[in-house]
Simulated scan of single mutants.
Amino acid sequence: MNLAVVLVSPKTPGNVGAAARAMLNMGAGDLRIVAPRCDVLDSQAVAMAVHAADLLRSARVYPTLQEALADRDVSVGTTARLRADLPAPRHPAQVRPLVRAAAAPALVFGPEETGLINSDLEQCQVSIRIPTGDYASLNLAQAVLLVCYEFLQAQDDVPEWTRKTATREEMEAMYGHLHETMHLIGYTDAVRARHTLRLWRSMLDRALMSSAESRLFRGLLRQVQWKVADAAARGTAAPRPAPPNEDPGE
């Protein structure tokens, strides 16, 4: 499986090295690191990686999570708690068929102290929570080991179908286009836009669009934008904002 493990802003070199070792244990070989706060090739990281030192050295570093996920078709975020406006995290086993059917899935892990923030989880189609006892705090490498096991080594029926979905780069471009169009037609405003777009993301991510479907949707948005511009040029119509007491995202 072409599985990528993405570490967002890790703080401790030893944790990065231990995460690489956990990946090698489970058969994952694509490590991606977003905006690290440490030297990921520090001697402590190399020492903790043990036989995964080569995997650690081949890790790619990205300035943003969006760039790290650009070529992925399914991204799975990890979280230990419920978030407002975001779908509840699921058990890893429930997500296993989705990941195994993907062409280029990614697992996303947050900083050691805080985990992923909401804007990170918004870029993931689904989130998972590792079931634990009352003490739910896992070391970064422990989390990587457990989730990689679920998706790479745990036994499961082979998915009956495979489907190549749009990359995150394509989906993020579509969401940016949708955001522009919502403002253009007065569907939302600056205050409500983030909440509204989250709801649209949640719905459209569940659809697991193909590249062609994302282009089809953007074609509709382009037609809306053209129609508004044409009407404005003719002086026949002007977009009006939504009524102040109405939330189009609800």
Results as ranks from 00 to 15, higher is better:
111 P>I: 02
57 R>T: 10
119 S>Q: 12
60 R>C: 12
52 A>N: 14
126 V>R: 05
76 V>K: 11
134 D>N: 12
100 R>V: 09
97 P>S: 00
52 A>F: 09
70 A>W: 05
92 P>K: 10
139 N>G: 00
136 A>P: 11
27 G>M: 07
135 Y>E: 14
136 A>G: 11
73 D>G: 05
90 R>L: 15
66 Q>K: 11
129 R>P: 01
36 P>W: 02
45 A>N: 06
93 A>Y: 12
130 I>L: 14
67 E>G: 09
70 A>Y: 05
137 S>M: 03
127 S>I: 10
127 S>F: 05
138 L>G: 01
53 A>D: 14
37 R>S: 12
130 I>N: 08
11 K>S: 13
78 T>Q: 07
37 R>P: 06
14 G>L: 04
49 A>C: 08
77 G>E: 06
22 A>G: 15
87 P>W: 04
60 R>M: 14
28 A>D: 00
18 A>S: 15
119 S>L: 08
62 Y>F: 15
10 P>G: 09
51 H>M: 13
10 P>Y: 06
81 R>E: 00
108 V>D: 01
48 M>P: 09
80 A>V: 15
86 L>W: 01
90 R>C: 13
92 P>Q: 01
113 E>F: 07
14 G>W: 10
14 G>F: 08
124 C>A: 13
42 D>I: 04
58 S>I: 04
62 Y>L: 05
27 G>V: 01
65 L>E: 06
55 L>V: 12
121 L>C: 01
20 A>W: 12
13 P>Y: 05
65 L>A: 03
96 R>E: 15
47 A>K: 10
73 D>M: 04
134 D>P: 10
111 P>T: 06
23 M>P: 04
7 L>Y: 11
126 V>E: 06
29 G>W: 10
47 A>E: 13
15 N>F: 08
12 T>E: 14
132 T>V: 09
117 I>E: 13
38 C>M: 03
101 A>G: 11
126 V>Q: 14
13 P>S: 05
67 E>I: 08
68 A>K: 02
49 A>W: 09
97 P>Y: 02
138 L>R: 01
60 R>N: 08
90 R>A: 14
119 S>D: 14
109 F>M: 00
87 P>D: 01
39 D>C: 00
77 G>R: 03
7 L>E: 15
14 G>T: 07
51 H>D: 14
106 A>V: 02
62 Y>S: 02
9 S>K: 15
16 V>M: 07
121 L>P: 06
57 R>F: 02
49 A>H: 06
46 V>W: 10
63 P>C: 09
59 A>C: 01
62 Y>M: 01
67 E>P: 04
89 P>E: 03
114 T>M: 08
45 A>R: 06
118 N>I: 03
45 A>K: 05
132 T>H: 10
80 A>P: 03
130 I>P: 02
108 V>R: 03
74 V>T: 11
23 M>V: 04
